[in-house]
Computed example of a mutant assay.
Amino acid sequence: MLKSFDKYEVHIFDITSAMNQLKEEKVVIYKLEKIDAFTYTFLASPYCRNRIKKVFVQPKLIKKVGLFHIVENFFTFKTTALALMFSIVLFFLFCNRIWKINISGDNKQLYPKIQETLEKNKIKVGMGKINSESLLLVEEKILYDLKDQIEWLEMRVNGSTLTVKFLKKRVSNPPILLNQSLYATKDGVIHSFDIKNGEKMVKVNDYVKKGDLLVKDVVTTDQNEDVYVGTYGSVYAYTWYTVDATYTLKDNEAYDEVDVFSTLLIESRAEVGKEITENESIEKENVIQFKKEGKIITMKVHFTCIEDITKE
């Protein structure tokens, strides 16, 4: 059969009315057969499918016959086969390439540097998989390039993912230089200790004078033997300062008590600040005198500080 037809099965109450509608739609049907009271089958050209749907409600296409459908089936099968072959090729390409690179380590700040070094060594997403021996060579090359920043590196391939693990280079702490016994460099009341080596000779809230022994550089064993251990650390104590500050009014300058008070207090704090370091602080301040005599204003402030009284 050179011509091609679609075979339909339809359900309809009035076949005569349907035939008239088919005629209006210019649809020619062949081999009309009655299956039961309201069911019919017939053949029609495949080019009439949309027009047949206008005449019948849910026409059922039960068979395709003829040369057109043989060719159609051939191309459908060929397209499916090509799609299958293409999918297989893509699958093998996907399985034999690196599509993801994971970097993990104990310092996230090094991630960009490691990524840059990987790319420098042609390790990037989309590359073909490499064998274990080549991977070890790349490991050694990257570890050498980053020898000043990392001390261990491991690269492993799992499926299409390359995982890079590393440990940053550890820096050895310089050896602690031990001191001799620690003595108070000024009077004070002990506030706290930060002692790593040595034997404490005073306790918190003790009043000490300049020259008193605070931490001894030897310890006495149970056998009454002195063993040198050195000293390392600080002893903090409450210390005191009294600062005098003066302000002289200029000619025709109006006296602003609040402004002058603030200026003198700031100057007094700055004066004490010259005596204390980063880990020390002003604990309390007390203005014990503020007076004006003519154009001269004076202030006396008493400061309580917390200082390391072992520093020179």
Rank of each mutant, 00 (worst) to 15 (best):
V89G: 04
W99R: 04
F74G: 15
N102A: 10
Y40P: 12
S104M: 09
S104A: 08
S17T: 12
S87F: 12
S132M: 08
A18N: 02
E72W: 11
L22P: 00
M19H: 01
F13A: 12
Q21H: 06
I35F: 02
I88G: 08
F92H: 06
E72R: 00
T117D: 10
K129N: 04
K108H: 07
L137H: 08
R49K: 10
I114E: 03
I29C: 03
I15P: 02
K63V: 08
M85V: 14
M85Y: 02
M127C: 03
A83H: 00
F38T: 13
K108P: 09
I103P: 01
L110G: 04
D145I: 05
F38H: 11
T41V: 12
Q115F: 11
L43T: 08
F77G: 10
A44H: 04
Q115T: 14
F38N: 09
M19F: 08
K53A: 15
V125M: 09
E33I: 10
P46K: 04
E139T: 12
T80A: 12
N131H: 10
K78M: 15
R49Y: 13
H69R: 01
L90T: 07
L67G: 05
N131F: 04
N96V: 03
V89R: 00
L135W: 00
P112Q: 10
D14F: 11
I114D: 02
K23F: 13
K124E: 14
T80K: 00
G128H: 12
I29D: 03
L146N: 01
S17Y: 12
V65T: 07
I88A: 11
F75S: 01
F94H: 07
N73F: 10
Y144F: 12
E24A: 04
K108Q: 12
L93S: 11
E25K: 08
N107H: 12
F86Q: 01
N50I: 14
L136F: 07
N131A: 09
K54G: 01
S45G: 10
V89I: 15
F56C: 04
K54P: 00
R97H: 15
T39R: 01
D106N: 15
T16Q: 12
F38W: 02
N73T: 06
K120T: 06
K53Q: 11
M127H: 06
K64R: 14
I15Y: 06
L61Y: 11
L136N: 12
Y40C: 02
L93I: 13
K108R: 11
F91Q: 03
I114Q: 02
I35E: 05
I123E: 04
K108N: 13
